[in-house]
Design a binder for these strands. Structure first.
Lengths: 259, 259
DNA sequence: CGCGATTTGTGCACGTGTTCACGAGCGCCT
DNA sequence: AGGCGCTCGTGAACACGTGCACAAATCGCG
């Protein structure tokens, strides 16, 4: 059964999708493509783990810039971002980073570079579907503008909510989605609906041309291969913490018997 | 500079801490400790990546159980949880899983096992600090009870908010935190304050005995080594999606010149 | 001008996580 | 009873991510 559409994990990490071709007959073992990746100004590869950390670096850099900092050492920035300094340097090296040896990194320059890599030059328009408890909170969160996004439209399926104004935006019915997505050039959407509605909403979004979805509903979405899904589930985070609590408790309970 | 307290990554993943002892003189190369890990009923090791997936399995299992399912094959459960079936089997094998070959896993039994491993037998009391936009939404989210948690107390630093009732709970002042944490046996807390307040709140929480923190504030928390921190940052998730958008856009722009 | 202090960039080894592929057990059907 | 198909459990290879440690490069100063 199932085998619905495409068996994408769509989890928070592990994005295969690379090297989709050549699943069997890859006759030539040649492991040296010599010119790795893109042509010149584009980036070679950028591991997924690095991508996940770049936003954190960016945030830390903005804090430093606001504090009047001009250059940062990898050590400083690393502790500000909560990572190892070697890791940070390696991550930045993927960006053709131009740090100065003996000095550090130019803060402004690095901000520009990371923002460019993340595609944050233009403010991206985001659609938010589901104006319940959580949706309203997300819509009201003011910290988006400074991080490269703005909520361009709110949608809900409940006619009673349509027309409400939240944070200066009118809630529209989800049937208007196609039109708004087209006119506002929206490529990213946030799903904050109950779980039972999430898949339907996701299908609609995909049909309208949305290619990135941030899903707050506690369920797995199945989407075509070219659509990226990230998931945030509060209960899962708490359950992971609970595991560590449980572990800590049982560990301190036993005397541990260190040889 | 800095080197504040302890340089824990405190990130969303990668929890070292295991195998702290025996870092050098492990004279005997004997790679077969025979009895691996804990004594009998306890679990041997449980990789962090597995722990992060167990909650998702649990959610999928509950859906199946509600649908009247009795046994599941690894393939079914894997697709329901959005993962590879081999990964699922390996994950479950860490739990001394008792699946039946040729049949599958007993749903109820597996639910019990995972809940036990995650320490969800008792409902865990969670404190929520910061009753702003997001905090109110989290407090109002009803899906906790079924997932092993209940919000036991709300706190805020703003005296104007103290005394408000949200979802049947009164907001208390953060100065009462120590008292409430002690009486309610709270070990897990959620920080939903502005970023500038988060570190202070975290310090307070740690002083009161909280050992697991879920941080929604966009900043890095520094905490002692025995405290677990997980972070959820909406803007970071969006920025990661933005990167993939950007990537997809530039990839489709070029003609790709296949071979 | 040369030297030392400092910090980046990175090769390499290691650990962690993922996936394949296959043996081992279980139930069912004849 | 015996065989057959199905599914779990897992060893082993592979891919990925991390961190050390050091060479290369730059600045500042005498």
């Amino acid at each position: 059964m199932s085998q619905q559409r495409s068996e994408r994990p769509a989890g928070s990490d592990s994005r295969p999708a690379r090297s989709a071709a050549g699943l069997s007959a890859n006759g030539s073992p040649g492991h040296g493509p010599s010119d790795r990746g893109a042509s010149a100004s584009e980036l070679p590869d950028l591991p997924e783990a690095t991508v996940a950390r770049l936003p954190e670096y960016l945030r830390a850099l903005h804090v430093l810039a606001d504090g009047g900092g001009d250059v940062v050492s990898s050590e400083e920035l690393a502790t500000a971002a909560g990572v190892n300094s070697a890791k940070l340097r390696k991550d930045l090296s993927y960006l053709r980073s131009n740090g100065t040896r003996g000095v550090g990194y130019d803060v402004g320059q690095l901000i520009d570079k990371i923002e460019h890599v993340l595609g944050l030059n233009q403010h991206r328009a985001v659609a938010l579907v589901g104006v319940g408890n959580l949706g309203q909170a997300l819509a009201g969160y003011g910290g988006f503008g400074s991080r490269g996004f703005h909520i361009a439209a709110l949608f809900d399926a409940d006619p009673a909510r349509v027309g409400d104004r939240i944070a200066g935006l009118a809630v529209r019915h989800i049937d208007d989605l196609a039109e708004v997505v087209a006119t506002e050039h929206i490529a990213i959407a946030v799903i904050a609906t109950p779980a039972h509605a999430a898949q339907t909403v996701a299908d609609t979004l995909v049909n309208c041309g949305v290619t990135s979805i941030l899903n707050f509903a506690p369920c797995v979405l199945s989407v075509p291969e070219n659509v990226d899904v990230r998931k945030v589930d509060l209960a899962i985070e708490l359950q992971i913490l609970s595991f560590h609590e449980h572990r800590k408790a049982t560990l301190t309970a036993l005397p541990e018997a260190i040889s």
